[in-house]
Computed example of a mutant assay.
Amino acid sequence: MALLSSPRPLPTHFSASTSTSLLLRRRPITACQVCTPKQPLNHSTVSVSEASADDELWAAACLRIRSFNNFKPTTFGLQDHKKFLAEREFEAMKERVSGKRKGFGRVSCINATVPLSHFSSLSVSADDLCASCKFTNNGEERVVVGTLDLNQCVSLPDEITGSRPKEIGADFARAYLSNVCVANELLRNGLGHALVAKSKMVAKDWGISDLYVHVAVDNEPAKQLYTKSGFVYESDEPAWQARFLDRPRRLLLWFGIPGVQL
């Protein structure tokens, strides 16, 4: 999977247990098939929009679990573990999107989706994009192939904090992108650019003036994506902090939303 920015840590208070009605609506994460596009992605079939329905949020959570983890196929109980992680991310996403996450003004899950009919030639694989990341919208089955979160907040947990805007009002005029990923099956189709472009539009509607994203110093594809999208360097993470958090050192990139005045 293509990891375009670092995932935000999950809240520790969420458990895998959920209501029966939600469990019935969710599709299990299985390891039986992988989708192969019929042809290079037809961009007229791509929809990039904010998600609110549980089914789509669940599909996005499953894509993130596939993207942010390197699972060994021989691991005992792997599918149960994947489902547990997806359950946690799903519950955390619902809390953030519903506005219940302390310290956040707004959070939007923005997804890139394509119709299930775009895929064919199913074959056996450890990954299963179509089955795991599928949802139904107005009677049409679609697949989440890219996702990110737009977070209106002063800072993200355990991350470098942006310095703009400096005026009073930074608590509602600053936002961060997180959990940015694109399915490996559809890399180099411009989906990352489309997700970032949509996030800028939503941020502008919210009155956001300063948009940030964190990226690992050695993640060249992600840095190229954000540079082409207009982001510039602002600061970087101290080496001691990266060692303490046991992760690659990160850069903080900034983009000024045109036409937004505080």
Rank of each mutant, 00 (worst) to 15 (best):
Q33A: 06
V182N: 07
A60Q: 08
F84L: 07
G256E: 13
R101I: 03
R188F: 09
V213M: 08
A59R: 01
N137E: 15
K198H: 03
K204F: 01
T113V: 12
S163W: 05
A31P: 00
K82A: 06
P221N: 01
S44W: 01
G99C: 03
P11R: 11
F172S: 15
S209Y: 05
G230N: 07
F255D: 11
S163L: 14
L150W: 02
T20N: 11
L148V: 03
F76N: 10
A242S: 13
N184E: 10
P9I: 06
M93I: 08
A53K: 04
R88Y: 11
H193G: 11
F255A: 12
E140V: 10
C153M: 07
L63Q: 04
L150C: 02
L245S: 05
V217Q: 15
G259E: 13
Q224F: 08
R96H: 04
L129V: 10
N151M: 09
I160F: 03
R249N: 00
P157D: 06
L129Q: 05
P73W: 01
A203H: 07
C35Y: 07
G139P: 07
S49D: 08
F90K: 07
K82L: 14
A112I: 07
L57E: 09
L195P: 06
S199C: 09
V202N: 05
T147N: 04
R174N: 10
Y212A: 11
H81C: 04
F255R: 12
A61M: 13
V46S: 05
G207R: 02
V144F: 10
A53E: 14
Q261W: 01
K198G: 01
T12P: 02
W254G: 01
S121Q: 14
G77Q: 05
R247W: 12
V114Y: 03
N151C: 15
I110Q: 01
Y176W: 02
S21I: 13
E50C: 13
R243W: 09
T20C: 09
A197G: 09
L129R: 00
N42G: 06
